[in-house]
Design a protein around this nucleic acid. Sequence first.
DNA 1: TTAAATTTGATTGTGTACAATTTAATTGTA
DNA 2: TACAATTAAATTGTACACAATCAAATTTAA
Lengths: 148, 148
Amino acid sequence: MSKYDCLKLENQLCFPLYACAKAVTRHYKPLLDEFDLTYTQYITMMVMWERKSASVKEVGECLYLDSGTLTPLINKLESKGYISKARSSDDARGVIITVTGEGMKLRDRMVKVPGAMGGCVALSEKEATQLYNLLYKILGHFDQIDEA
Amino acid sequence: MSKYDCLKLENQLCFPLYACAKAVTRHYKPLLDEFDLTYTQYITMMVMWERKSASVKEVGECLYLDSGTLTPLINKLESKGYISKARSSDDARGVIITVTGEGMKLRDRMVKVPGAMGGCVALSEKEATQLYNLLYKILGHFDQIDEA
DNA sequence: TTAAATTTGATTGTGTACAATTTAATTGTA
DNA sequence: TACAATTAAATTGTACACAATCAAATTTAA
């Protein structure tokens, strides 16, 4: 029992969180490679599939990403033909991105991906729900801190 | 209820994991800035504080990182004076890194960091343990997959 | 014992992340 | 109305992450 115990890797909660998130995206990679998408591009497409259209700012709020990350990423998705970009007519500062027909077709082709990944994680239904709730509890608390 | 529900962001387990890990390291940043360390440098020092000495390969196994990430990071920690590098005498392929006196002094100065971060996460003891166990369960399963 | 296979760390290239700054557009206010 | 403050994206710079490749050293096996 030392005063340094709190600095041991095994006593950290953040480290398994960090390592686990990386492990998950690493195991997503072979699944996503078939569609020529990275994980971040994939979740960006998820937002687009649901909303059809959104500003860069809105996408950033959904994904906790800023324009420094999203601008090049969105340009790549545009060059792949999955989304289109246009200045907002309401407010010329904003850029509205819209999912294309090709982008919607991609959704059909990717329906099997979450299932394939789920088989990889191997938690029970109950454990998965537990984890889900704990993670959103932390995220919610951070959101609260940040808006203050 | 659509066949596309599995592709909704809110139905993903991976997304809050990814977002939460980023939120945690983001909130670590102001704490670590005072010591001129990044999060990855910080956990690398944790390994060094515990082991005093380890090969690049061993550090990588502890942290789930490869030489592409560790080589430049270790060079930075060396230039800050917290560790030293030397070829292994046993096996000239290996590079052994060793924590310096300055590196050990840093541990004393950083004892307050985990507590400060813990106050930020705001889970009960029980929830934190639950989360810890779930994360290591996933990591353990991935380890199993990977070694096969 | 050598030649092939493996291992270790470094290097290169791509893709995030995110802070900080810049530019253009909009809003608020005196 | 003017003009300061704010906002949205883009840009720039630093630091991971990791795949792929390389070079040097070591191990294995024929």
